[in-house]
Design a protein around this nucleic acid. Structure first.
Lengths: 361, 361
DNA sequence: GTATGCAACTTGTACGGACAACTTTTATTA
DNA sequence: TAATAAAAGTTGTCCGTACAAGTTGCATAC
């Protein structure tokens, strides 16, 4: 823990609390150096050091000859909200949450974490609006949001959620996908991954590794990340014998997989994420099919499973840390300057080549 | 100017120069507090203040008990390059250059500005490669680049340019468009404007203002910003009587304009930028056509001409300052961490409604 | 030869004082 | 009443000192 016996840290935390609880008048000036010296019985260097720390936190500004004054940031609560859904098709939100939590700690923010992990869509929709109201009541400065997906009325729930935050004047940054379908664009900041390009890069790699009959394993869902990877893959497979063949199945349905392989005889299968790829590889080994000798397998995510299976999975690496850092920084910027134009940031997911597509690691 | 009679500023600038010129060994430790005190004859507070300034500039780090050490940033030159083309179809690069210049000054960087304004494409291509070599010889830390457009071999020139910077290990950020055609994506950072969405927003506004026969004035060029606006506009005009009619003409060709108006009888014309819109309005007034009563006119950019014409132009506002700030910040980040995944940032251009589309300002 | 402990050096915290630069308020003067 | 001048208060710079906390290397002891 921090050594709290340091005078300037003690005084700093006392004043921080008083600022956060709104004990200082916005219009009047903040405590002067000499006031701090008298009140806490410290020397001038210490008082100056305390005010410098407050300055670094963006809470006060100093004007020579005039005094020290609170900034707009001083009237914030120092709380930031995060809304994610545990059972997502992209396995990036656990590491993102972790990084956001670290960033908050380091910068003196309190993180309110809401993980909507209810099983049924209806429950999830209800819970998310309840959580939003909670956050607003608590008074947060801003919120990072993973939009709801795969509900029949996801878009309207998302719109209601954003409307509530808008009404409360709370800025927000969307994670991974917009709340409106693809060509459309909402007016909220967005940090995502270029899943389309990830699909293309994967297809390019599989072709280079010798594959010509490439297909994609997905399920009936249409989560943006899943389908964008599919679109990118398809674009790059133009002109090949199996352009745009999807294997719509659970990867552990042995019979379906066997029939599919017999029918199309693919030489590479890209799975919509690493988890599915790992399960598929298990099924394939039951069927006596060797990876990568008989069939190339690739996944997407590089979060949990890619290096734990044999052979290790070729995949695209989701830059979770950078997503979290970018989103956090966009949010802080928007808290300070709410009038910035809406921004969308896309990060690339670099290809990580491992044994499952032929090369020895 | 800064008051250079301040001791800590004098010492700071001396040490800054020495660091920039590489006078300190990378492996050995930097000057200690007491060394600075002795050498410059200053007190400890002043020495500390100097080191703190160097710390704020990211040039040194201090470790208690051990000493002060130079960072990687200390071996940079403090020079940043900017490459733009004066005669561009998007009129955003003059204000962008200005803002970048301000940012450099404020943060202690020297800006090398290269404006490639040669008339013929061939000259431009030659000059740009010469400029790149110049920058590399001078030793810059990073570069902001507006890619070449509208040359038959623009892509190959751009690739050569980037290859030179890559070889010299100089990070770069692209402005406004990628060096590869649209669905493709290079591995360089990119800051752009969502021109597609700007086109859509403009079309939505024109429809709301009552227009049903909407067309778009452009020339034969295919600059990304011009054609993306067109694509967005077209998307939003689906189902209208004139879906996707372009007026391919110079806006001062009175005869062509008259014939076009007679043939298609449009009730709104969006021009690919404000300058063309201003010229078109002049032509229209010669033809006795009143804006906005007979015909709605809109432009794009909101940089130079939009408020100077009568009636004032409805347009979309290019957030030039924010583009420059974003690009600059991305570049600094990449200079520090070259291994970050490639990022693309798109800013929205908000609609600015003025009299030329019907409403009184 | 190895290990221990001390000395020397570094930065971090904290005190005191002094004057300069600047702003705001108050008092004075025209 | 309005302009001017002085006074009081504030932050900015700069000096001195002292001790604490941490690192490094050397000398000593085993």
């Amino acid at each position: 823990m921090d050594n709290k016996s340091l005078k300037y840290k003690k005084v700093f935390s006392v004043l921080l609390d008083e600022i956060r609880s709104g004990r200082f008048d916005a219009s009047r000036s903040f405590l002067s150096e000499s006031q701090i010296m008298r009140r806490f019985g410290v020397g001038r260097q210490t008082a100056i050091r305390v005010i410098q720390e407050l300055q670094k936190s963006g809470l006060v500004v100093r004007r020579q000859g005039s005094g020290t004054f609170l900034t707009r940031a001083a009237h914030h609560t120092g709380r930031i909200g995060l809304i994610v859904h545990g059972s997502s098709y992209c396995e990036i939100f656990a590491p993102i949450s972790r990084t956001v939590s670290h960033l908050c700690q380091r910068q003196g923010y309190t993180l309110l974490l809401g993980d909507i992990a209810f099983p049924t869509p209806k429950e999830r929709a209800a819970r998310v609006l309840q959580l939003v109201q909670d956050y607003i009541d608590q008074g947060i400065d801003g919120v990072l949001i993973q939009p709801l997906e795969l509900l029949q009325d996801a878009e309207s729930v998302n719109r209601n959620m954003m409307a509530l935050f808008d009404k409360a004047n709370i800025p927000s940054v969307l994670l991974d996908s917009d709340i409106v379908p693809s060509p459309d664009r909402s007016s909220y900041d967005l940090v995502g991954i270029n899943h389309f390009d990830a699909g293309r890069i994967m297809a390019k790699h599989l072709r280079k590794a010798g594959a010509r009959r490439i297909c994609y394993l997905m399920q009936k869902n249409r989560a943006p990340c899943v389908s964008n990877r599919w679109l990118g893959l398809k674009t790059e497979c133009e002109g090949l014998p199996l352009p745009g063949i999807q294997l719509l199945s659970q990867p552990d349905e042995v019979k379906t997989i066997r029939n599919f392989l017999k029918k199309y005889n693919p030489d590479a299968i890209a799975c919509y994420n690493d988890r599915q790829a790992a399960i598929l590889m298990h099924t394939l080994s039951e069927l006596g099919i060797k990876v990568p000798d008989d069939l190339l397998i690739a996944g997407f995510d590089d979060v949990n499973y890619a290096t734990l299976v044999t052979p290790q999975l070729t995949t695209t690496h989701q830059p979770c840390k950078e997503i979290a850092e970018t989103a956090f920084s966009l949010l802080l910027q928007r808290i300070i300057k709410p009038d910035l134009p809406p921004r969308e940031v896309f990060l690339s997911a670099p290809l990580v080549i491992r044994a499952s597509t032929g090369r020895k690691p």
